[in-house]
Design a protein around this nucleic acid. Structure first.
Length: 362
DNA sequence: TCTGGGGTCCTAGGACCC
DNA sequence: TCTGGGGTCCTAGGACCC
């Protein structure tokens, strides 16, 4: 017997999260343009903007632009370095509240989560009231605003939480999905980024409504089986992916910008030793073992290349990270005549935590 | 204007096995 | 001398997200 009852999914997205956290800690910042920065360590204003509050956005200061450019756009803005410990602590406060209202819960990032509230409310009107109540509780207990979306699936819930910001709430009922999506830009579809957007533009498609009219065969021809089908379905608001709690991370990595561009092995080895130590500490804290080690190299032209080694058996010591990443870095430099700007160390195929793939499981 | 750092998921080719 | 097809693992790279 078909189940005609739609799911009811809530997506919560904290507003300009890092900057709002800083405003909470330093109330004197409220009303001023605040810019959260990732400094590259090359001195001065080298680095990029991580996020900014709405006052700063009025000047054109947004995520991803160089800090130096942001300073030209508004020299009087408040520029702060990222303080992840603070944001993680506040994130935990928010997630704990959300968890309490969910049938199932899925944290998507430090400032976003999905809640399946299907059993908790009887229809979308009740869901809207619940979303309002949750937003109010976050405001009172945590002191931050967020934007929320309520819809029959994760894809639409996420797009709708992004629809009105900040402090927004958008409900899209099952029979409203198509008219909601139709006028939106193709890149508003989560999963369609710059590249796919450009290729779709070349096919004459600018809106999600236009995408939904393209034959599946054409999309499959252009983007391959999996992505073609996904695009067709997503453009019609179809998404069956469940809200499921993530079982720990799949990979742990650290990367950094070199003080100056180089291909000097000794300089690179010193840096990746430090990164390896950091990666090791994160692994240790979560009692995880790893089976693959990767050296990540970003050259001066910003192209990313990787070199990976699979171990015979899982390891959990820092020496295993360092020895392998040294070997991979040496090999990389003999194979690629490029100068590096950034380097990284990554371990993956993690095992050991409960709920994760363990050794005894074949 | 000169460009961070943390992730996830997918694809594709070659090796290897049955 | 000619000889299939399927499955899994490993490696590299690309697209995307926050």
């Amino acid at each position: 017997m078909p189940n005609n009852n739609p799911r009811i999914i809530l997506h919560v997205d904290m507003d300009y999260f890092f900057a709002q956290c800083e405003e909470r800690e330093h109330p004197e910042l409220k009303g001023k343009p605040v810019v959260i920065c990732v400094y590259s360590g090359r001195g001065g204003d080298s680095g990029a903007v991580s996020t900014s509050n709405y006052e700063a956005r009025k000047f054109g200061i947004k995520a991803g632009i160089p800090i130096s450019r942001a300073k030209k756009l508004n020299p009087d803005a408040i520029f702060l370095p990222v303080n992840m410990e603070l944001y993680r602590g506040i994130s935990d406060e928010v997630m704990e509240i959300l968890r309490g209202y969910c049938v199932s819960f899925e944290q998507e990032s430090v400032d976003e989560a999905f809640c399946d509230i299907t059993g908790r409310v009887s229809d979308f009107d009740e869901a809207k009231l619940l979303a309002m109540r949750i937003k109010e509780e976050i405001r009172q207990k945590v002191g931050l605003t967020c934007s929320a979306g309520v819809a029959p699936n994760k894809l639409i819930a996420k797009i709708s939480s992004d629809f009105r910001k900040p402090d927004g709430l958008t409900v899209v009922k099952p029979d409203e999905i198509l008219q909601f999506l139709a006028p939106l830009k193709i890149t508003d579809l989560t999963g369609v980024g710059k590249k796919t957007g450009e290729r779709l533009n070349e096919l004459g498609v600018k809106t999600i409504g236009e995408l939904s009219k393209l034959p599946a065969e054409e999309l499959i021809r252009e983007f391959g089986q999996a992505k073609g089908i996904w695009l067709k379905q997503a453009s019609q608001g179809i998404d069956d992916s469940p809200v499921v709690e993530r079982e720990g991370t799949e990979q742990i990595g650290r990367m950094t910008t070199l003080k100056e561009d180089t291909r000097d092995l000794n300089v690179i080895l010193d840096v990746i030793d430090e990164l390896s130590e950091d990666v090791f500490r994160k692994l240790e804290a979560r009692k995880l073992a790893f089976r693959s080690v990767t050296f990540v190299a970003i050259s001066t032209d910003f192209k990313t290349r990787t070199k990976t080694h699979m171990l015979e058996a899982p390891a959990k010591d820092s020496a295993a990270i360092k020895e392998n990443v040294h070997r991979l870095a040496k090999l990389f430099l003999t194979e690629h005549p490029v100068t590096l700007r950034r380097v990284g160390v990554r371990v993956a195929n993690l095992t050991g935590e409960k709920g994760q793939k363990t050794l005894g499981e074949f």
